[in-house]
Computed example of a mutant assay.
Amino acid sequence: MGRDLLADGLRGSAGCGDIRIWSAVSRGDQGMYIALGSPAGTALLEVPVQDVRTFLENTEALVPRGTESGHIDWDLELANLFAKG
Protein backbone atom coordinates (compact mmCIF):
# COMPACT_ATOMS: atom_id res chain seq x y z
CA MET A 1 0.00 0.00 0.00
CA GLY A 2 1.54 3.28 -1.07
CA ARG A 3 1.98 6.40 1.00
CA ASP A 4 0.01 8.40 -1.54
CA LEU A 5 -3.01 6.19 -0.95
CA LEU A 6 -2.71 6.61 2.82
CA ALA A 7 -2.35 10.39 2.46
CA ASP A 8 -5.38 10.53 0.17
CA GLY A 9 -7.32 8.51 2.72
CA LEU A 10 -6.62 11.15 5.37
CA ARG A 11 -8.39 13.74 3.21
CA GLY A 12 -11.33 11.61 2.09
CA SER A 13 -12.25 8.32 0.51
CA ALA A 14 -9.45 6.79 -1.56
CA GLY A 15 -8.70 3.63 -3.46
CA CYS A 16 -10.94 1.31 -5.38
CA GLY A 17 -11.33 -2.39 -5.95
CA ASP A 18 -9.34 -4.48 -3.49
CA ILE A 19 -8.16 -1.61 -1.28
CA ARG A 20 -10.32 1.24 -0.05
CA ILE A 21 -9.38 3.76 2.63
CA TRP A 22 -11.29 6.52 4.39
CA SER A 23 -11.08 8.63 7.52
CA ALA A 24 -14.01 9.27 9.83
CA VAL A 25 -12.49 12.33 11.53
CA SER A 26 -15.14 14.61 10.05
CA ARG A 27 -17.75 12.62 12.04
CA GLY A 28 -15.80 12.99 15.29
CA ASP A 29 -14.13 9.57 14.99
CA GLN A 30 -10.34 9.44 15.21
CA GLY A 31 -10.05 6.29 13.10
CA MET A 32 -8.98 5.55 9.57
CA TYR A 33 -10.56 2.53 7.96
CA ILE A 34 -8.87 0.24 5.46
CA ALA A 35 -11.04 -2.27 3.62
CA LEU A 36 -9.13 -5.11 1.95
CA GLY A 37 -10.89 -7.46 -0.43
CA SER A 38 -9.96 -10.57 -2.33
CA PRO A 39 -11.76 -13.59 -3.77
CA ALA A 40 -10.93 -15.37 -0.48
CA GLY A 41 -12.70 -12.77 1.68
CA THR A 42 -12.61 -9.26 3.06
CA ALA A 43 -11.15 -7.50 6.08
CA LEU A 44 -11.91 -4.14 7.64
CA LEU A 45 -9.05 -2.62 9.61
CA GLU A 46 -9.25 0.39 11.89
CA VAL A 47 -6.14 2.40 12.75
CA PRO A 48 -5.77 5.66 14.66
CA VAL A 49 -5.54 8.62 12.29
CA GLN A 50 -2.70 10.13 14.32
CA ASP A 51 -0.62 6.96 13.87
CA VAL A 52 -1.03 7.20 10.09
CA ARG A 53 -0.10 10.90 10.13
CA THR A 54 2.99 10.18 12.23
CA PHE A 55 4.00 7.31 9.94
CA LEU A 56 3.66 9.52 6.86
CA GLU A 57 5.61 12.39 8.45
CA ASN A 58 8.43 10.07 9.58
CA THR A 59 8.78 8.20 6.30
CA GLU A 60 8.60 11.39 4.21
CA ALA A 61 11.38 12.90 6.35
CA LEU A 62 13.58 9.91 5.45
CA VAL A 63 12.46 9.48 1.83
CA PRO A 64 10.57 12.47 0.38
CA ARG A 65 7.55 11.68 -1.75
CA GLY A 66 8.49 11.19 -5.37
CA THR A 67 12.10 10.17 -4.64
CA GLU A 68 11.45 6.52 -3.73
CA SER A 69 12.86 5.02 -6.92
CA GLY A 70 16.17 6.83 -6.41
CA HIS A 71 16.72 4.79 -3.23
CA ILE A 72 16.53 1.41 -4.97
CA ASP A 73 19.38 -0.22 -6.83
CA TRP A 74 17.25 -1.73 -9.63
CA ASP A 75 20.16 -3.61 -11.23
CA LEU A 76 20.98 -5.31 -7.94
CA GLU A 77 17.32 -6.15 -7.28
CA LEU A 78 16.92 -7.69 -10.75
CA ALA A 79 20.14 -9.66 -10.34
CA ASN A 80 18.86 -11.02 -7.02
CA LEU A 81 15.55 -12.02 -8.57
CA PHE A 82 17.20 -13.82 -11.48
CA ALA A 83 19.71 -15.52 -9.17
CA LYS A 84 16.86 -17.01 -7.13
CA GLY A 85 15.29 -18.25 -10.37
Rank of each mutant, 00 (worst) to 15 (best):
R3K: 12
D4E: 15
D4F: 11
L5A: 02
L5C: 02
L5W: 01
L6E: 00
L6S: 06
A7Y: 03
A7V: 04
A7C: 08
D8V: 04
G9R: 01
G9D: 00
G9P: 00
G9C: 06
L10T: 05
L10S: 09
R11Q: 14
R11T: 13
G12F: 06
G12I: 04
S13P: 02
S13Q: 07
S13N: 05
S13E: 03
S13H: 05
A14H: 04
C16G: 13
G17R: 08
G17C: 14
G17P: 05
D18W: 03
D18K: 02
D18G: 11
I19G: 01
I19H: 03
R20L: 10
I21E: 00
I21W: 00
W22S: 02
W22G: 00
W22H: 04
S23D: 01
S23P: 05
A24E: 06
A24P: 04
V25R: 09
V25H: 07
V25Y: 07
S26V: 15
S26K: 13
S26C: 13
S26T: 13
R27W: 15
G28K: 10
G28N: 09
G28W: 09
G28Y: 10
D29C: 13
D29A: 10
D29G: 10
Q30Y: 14
Q30K: 14
G31W: 06
G31S: 13
M32A: 09
Y33M: 06
Y33H: 12
Y33N: 02
Y33L: 04
Y33A: 04
A35P: 03
A35N: 05
A35W: 05
L36S: 06
L36K: 05
G37I: 02
G37A: 13
P39M: 05
P39T: 06
P39F: 10
P39H: 05
A40M: 11
A40Y: 08
G41N: 15
G41M: 15
G41Q: 14
T42R: 12
A43T: 07
A43W: 04
A43S: 12
L45H: 11
L45M: 10
E46W: 12
E46P: 11
E46V: 14
V47N: 01
V47Y: 06
V47I: 12
P48M: 07
V49L: 15
V49T: 10
Q50H: 14
D51Q: 12
D51T: 14
D51N: 14
V52G: 04
V52Q: 02
R53W: 03
F55K: 10
E57N: 06
E57L: 08
N58Q: 10
N58E: 05
T59D: 12
E60D: 12
E60Q: 10
A61T: 02
A61W: 02
V63E: 07
V63N: 08
V63S: 10
P64Q: 06
G66W: 03
G66H: 02
E68P: 04
E68S: 08
E68R: 12
E68D: 07
S69D: 13
S69C: 11
